[in-house]
């Protein structure tokens, strides 16, 4: 297991290196000079040159990239002050340090994504399993149809409708907001409930259909029939034998969905005017704010890669054939 983790971590670092280089060089392919942003109205070529030198943009791009990468691990010195490792530089737009900004915004996005996962796994897997258990009955058909309708709903479409219905028109709930869980767990929960549900709608539909079909496949497996032939109760067979087998495809899908989920969280932040990583990413793109953009990109990529390592490790826990070979 240790060997597996070491190998995967090394692989992950290589992937992140590629992503960082790709993003960095792609940024400079945009025909837009970030210096214009802080130059103001009375911009002279001299001013621009000065800003270039201050931001380090006067050096060749590979050298800039090299300094940037070194800074992440060793820290870096800027005219505005020292930046200790991990140093992702300062925002071009407002000179905020990148790393503290990300750390500040991240808890919101994490809360959003984690809550979303919990909601869609509970609702989606539950509905899917119930549909498989009562296959062919009204419940099965009902869940299947509902999931079909829900899977065509988009966050930016459902979000405003829910807000209008529950918040603005009827005042059943408060405007979604973020309170750190450490300060007020109840407020954290009630503030994010609507975003969680809206974010998980599409995923819920997908996981309902997926868990229904894998459960039905599993129930037709021969080892499930053997368990029934042994006299084990239907419930025992369903949860111990069939469900265990359907975990692998579900975990696989979860690993693939984590990127989409982060994207969904960003859209959700926008829809409900919450200031998380997603908001930060969009803002930095609009402002051609390279250090902030790089920081957000690398941070999100690292999260996705980390999650995939966790998923692969989970296979070993679920399936002894993976663990013992």
């Amino acid at each position: 297991m240790l060997r597996f983790l070491v190998r995967r971590t090394l692989g992950a670092l290589v992937i992140l290196l590629f992503i960082s280089a790709f993003t960095y060089f792609l940024f400079f392919a945009i025909p837009h000079d970030p210096a214009l942003l802080s130059c103001g109205k009375n911009c002279t070529p001299d001013n621009i040159a000065l800003i270039h030198r201050n931001l380090g943009l006067d050096e060749p791009i590979p050298v800039q990239y090299f300094h940037y990468m070194v800074g992440i691990f060793a820290g870096r010195h800027f005219s505005v002050g020292d930046c200790s490792a991990p140093c992702f530089g300062y925002s071009f737009a407002n000179s905020d340090p990148v790393w503290p900004t990300i750390l500040n915004r991240f808890p919101l996005t994490l809360s959003l994504a984690a809550g979303g996962i919990v909601v869609f796994l509970l609702v989606g897997l539950g509905a899917g399993m119930l549909a498989a258990w009562r296959r062919g009955t009204f419940i099965d058909k009902f869940f299947s149809s509902v999931s079909l309708v829900l899977s065509s709903m988009q966050i930016y479409f459902v979000g405003p409708i829910v807000l209008a219905l529950l918040v603005y028109n009827n005042q059943i709930m408060d405007q979604p907001k973020y309170v750190p869980i450490s300060e007020d767990p109840v407020g954290w929960f009630s503030g994010l409930l609507i975003p969680w549900c809206v974010l998980s709608i599409i995923f819920t539909a997908g996981y309902t259909r997926m868990s229904r079909s894998t459960m039905i496949d599993q129930l037709q497996e021969e080892h499930v029939r053997t368990a029934r032939a042994k006299g084990m109760s239907s419930r025992y067979v369903f949860f111990r034998y069939a469900w265990r087998g359907s975990l692998i495809p579900i975990v696989t899908m979860l690993g693939l969905d984590i990127g989409t989920l982060l994207g969904g969280a960003m859209i959700t932040e926008f829809t409900f005017s919450l200031a998380g990583i997603g908001r930060l990413a969009v803002d930095s793109v609009l402002r051609t704010d390279l250090p902030m953009l790089m920081g957000v990109m690398l941070f999100s990529a690292a999260l996705i890669v980390l999650f995939n390592i966790i998923v692969d490790a989970a296979y070993a826990f679920i399936d002894p054939r993976v663990r013992l070979s």
């Binding site: 021969e222 080892h223 053997t226 029934r228 032939a229 042994k230 006299g231 239907s234 034998y241 265990r244």
Partner: peptide, 24 residues
């Protein structure tokens, strides 16, 4: 039937690889 299966009447299947659960 559950009380009888595996107790009073039992069954052996053709392919023992797929007839046993890989997880236990």
């Amino acid at each position: 039937l559950e009380k009888l299966r595996g107790n009073k009447m039992a069954m052996i299947f053709q392919d023992p690889l797929t007839a046993l659960s890989p997880y236990y």
